[in-house]
């Protein structure tokens, strides 16, 4: 087991409304020289959170309230750009367990699923509600694939690949699953090498 399983999360949201937030913003390249996964949270959105002299800006991510938010609401097309897995590592190290947007870039979405960070592509109306209502307590239920909004915001279904859902709910990673396919792989490989 490599991460904490997710079934249901109820938390206040933190909203970063800009569209096309790229992984260079989430984790600037100059912090990619590390050879471990831990402790990246302090560099999350570094150039938004710190001044040139290293002091903290007044960005919301530096507030005490933000530390309790497990659900991040991003603008459209969140996580585009570089494939760096340092982005979800930093987000989970900071404390996020869910990221929601009206669109999430492919590689970032895949990387998130593998690190116990649930990426949810949500209906446009729900996304707009979330953008308009920061810091509300929202419930994400992976069992029923529902996002429940407070204050009559409604309940919205979301789609997630059955396999990814299973892995997130059980807290299992894919390495073991692939290792279990070694016979099929041997057979395939023998044929592949002949051709």
């Amino acid at each position: 087991m490599s991460f904490k399983p997710i079934t249901q999360i109820t938390s206040k949201t933190l909203v970063l409304p800009a569209s096309n937030i790229d992984t260079d913003q989430i984790m600037p390249a100059r912090f990619l020289t590390m050879t471990t996964k831990t402790g990246l949270g302090k560099h999350l959105f570094h150039d938004w959170r710190y001044n040139d002299d290293g002091t903290e800006t007044d960005h919301e991510l530096n507030s005490l309230a933000a530390k309790d938010c497990q659900i991040l609401i991003g603008g459209h097309n969140f996580g585009c750009g570089s494939s760096r897995e340092h982005a979800p590592w930093a987000l989970t190290d900071y404390g996020f367990r869910v990221v929601m947007s009206s669109e999430i870039a492919d590689i970032f979405r895949g990387n998130s699923l593998k690190n116990g960070l649930l990426p949810i592509v949500i209906d446009k109306a729900a996304h707009q509600w979330l953008l308009d209502h920061p810091s509300e307590e929202v419930t994400v239920d992976l069992e029923s694939c529902e996002v429940r909004l407070p204050k009559n915001g409604g309940t919205y279904k979301f789609e997630i690949d059955a396999f990814s859902r299973h892995c997130l709910m059980q807290g299992i990673d894919e390495m073991g699953y692939l290792q279990g396919q070694s016979d099929a792989l041997d057979t395939f490989e023998a044929r592949y090498e002949r051709n």
Partner: peptide
């Protein structure tokens, strides 16, 4: 196509990845 580090590990160990067809 590009992959994340977790999948780099999958490919090192299994020469394969899990993926849905785009």
């Amino acid at each position: 196509f590009g992959i994340g580090t977790t999948q780099v590990g999958h490919v090192l160990a299994n020469q394969s990845i899990l993926m849905r067809k785009p």
